[in-house]
Amino acid sequence: MKKINAIVVLALMVTAGCSSQRAVTSPEVRQSQVTPPPPPPSPVTKVPSGPVTPMVPAAPSGYGFDQWQTGPLGDVFFDFDSTVLGSAAQEQLNQNAAWLEKNALSKARIEGHCDSRGTSEYNLALGERRASTAKEYLVRLGVASSRLETISFGEERPFDSGQGENAWAKNRRAHFVMQK
């Protein structure tokens, strides 16, 4: 599945022309960095250094959209036990930020979800970090923090109840739900 992910990422990078964006550093690397304590909320994700060229898709389709996400904001997916936003996830968030900019009154809830592997308490924590990572990325792109709320469902509300990497990959996501 990693290979497939890589292919998807590569394809998106080529089609979206965002190869200049660099991937977010891994949590292990981040944790080893000695940085002064940042003002809360502490940044979990680094924002791409280059200028962002957001695109609002003509129709909700592609990476962030599937049978469980048919709204205007696409979901983002994560690797196993990871809160790192890959290139495709960042691109989706760029699109989401652009949509939110055009629809300035809209509010969204970001739900963090995990696959069923591992233990449920840890997954509840991991889910929150996925949701807040996505939120912080959007806030750094200029979306008001007050328009985005986060919640973690951990492994409690899987989208695909099946077993195996295909199902698990669908369940490791930050899921956008429009509010009101």
């Binding site: 949590p27 944790q31 502490s42 308490e121 840890y122 924590a125 991991l126 970090r129």
Partner: peptide, 8 residues
């Protein structure tokens, strides 16, 4: 006070 998940 550690960065990252602390729980259980």
């Amino acid at each position: 006070y550690s960065k990252g998940i602390d729980l259980s």
